[in-house]
Design a protein around this nucleic acid. Structure first.
Lengths: 217, 217
DNA sequence: ACACTATTCCAAGGATGATTGGAGAACCAT
DNA sequence: ATGGTTCTCCAATCATCCTTGGAATAGTGT
């Protein structure tokens, strides 16, 4: 007890979680899984990975007990093991963003910096007073797995065709997965190009849940 | 913008932080660095690593901007880049402990489970009412870098020789680096073997700082 | 300038991880 | 049972990481 081998063993155990978080592909899978449970096939397609590659990464996450699986017929659904995992993931991204200048560069290259953001408080205030329409631009199944109360599902794919559903005289607030999800940025670009007043929630569903705000299903 | 390469680049940037946390040795170094700045040589000795190995791991942490360096003569001191890093580190350990049964096993093998813990609140209560003597059993330089107000420095090495300094009729509360530091456990064992009433703080200085409790220097 | 200390850089070995295709396992439908 | 679907396991290749000794660098003291 108290010896070097035991100490190494303990820290190597901690490192299992670190190793699980040590690949961009796995972090992307985790980001998707945090939105609700998904099958291997769906995850592989969303992350643009080969099926076996995705499966291998998911096994790594599973062996670190960051995700759990559920079988339904031939399909296997992966979901987060708990919200502590989402919190850890969010904190990792925050630390990376605060500490690594390259993250900011990569973020702006991916998301752009041409869209205006609103805070969670502003969104709540606007939706309460009926001054804004809140749209959830994630795929429909992610909306179904939980969304901001009062938000209407308009997946980004369908947004151009469904403009008529949105009141033209009201501001639109779009949101998606989280602070690093591109969907809300593209939605705002599309809407403003159509002459609408549109902004995006600064973060997204991940941070909403972590803030323990109400979630509708 | 919004394309696959940019997305991969962004998540690979996040993964840089994950990679830095993907080695037990590096986590042990981080644990030491979180106690206050240390030289490469001191860190290598504490973690029982070769000098070049320790230097290489420290470079990895530095390139992830989790630690920063300061030169003083020929010596180079490493310290945490910020408390967000300590928070991330603590959360990683918490998730590992909550999710991985092997962590609990490894923890008990390393620390034992034969010593009684007190919470931070109990410690504060006891030290305020003068019902307990609080001792910091970390090495003297870590005490010097910041400690719990009212605690007296009694490094574990010196504890056996300095028993006389501790009032025999009062409970002793020992603390050290954090929830996974063995020093306070060994201190409590030594004290109880000498017939003293001794307990340990459930976690340690790392969590104390994260809770933003007052720190004396 | 020279010796000395503390640390990093470099190169090379072995170990571990990522990716892929193909085989195998679990389950469903007929 | 048979065939179809979904996913995991296995094996092989390639890339990356860990570790170590020896050389190089930066600074100090004489």
């Amino acid at each position: 007890m108290g010896d070097r081998d035991a100490k190494n063993a303990l820290f190597d155990q901690f490192a299992r979680v670190g190793k699980a978080l040590a690949s961009g592909k796995r972090l992307e899978l985790l980001d998707l899984i945090a939105q609700g449970e998904r099958t291997v096939d769906a995850l592989a397609k969303s992350a643009e990975l080969g099926l076996t590659t995705a499966s291998a990464h998911l096994q790594t996450l599973k062996q670190a007990n960051l995700v759990v699986t559920r079988r339904e017929g031939t399909k296997i659904f992966y979901r987060l093991a708990g919200y502590d995992v989402a919190a850890l993931f969010a904190q990792l991204r925050t630390v990376a963003d605060d500490r690594l200048p390259d993250v900011r560069t990569a973020r702006e290259a991916y998301l752009g910096d041409d869209t205006e953001a609103v805070s969670r408080e502003e969104l709540l205030d606007r939706v309460r007073s009926g001054r804004a329409t809140v749209i959830d631009v994630r795929p429909a199944e992610e909306y179904a797995a939980g969304h901001i109360p009062g938000a209407v599902s308009v997946p980004l794919d369908e947004l151009a065709d469904r403009l008529a559903e949105l009141p033209a005289d009201q501001e639109v607030v779009a949101y998606c997965r989280g602070a690093y999800c591109v969907l809300s940025h593209e939605a705002v670009r599309l809407l403003t190009a159509q002459g609408r007043t549109a902004r995006r929630l600064a973060d997204g569903m991940l941070e909403w849940r972590l803030a323990e705000l109400p979630v509708a299903v």
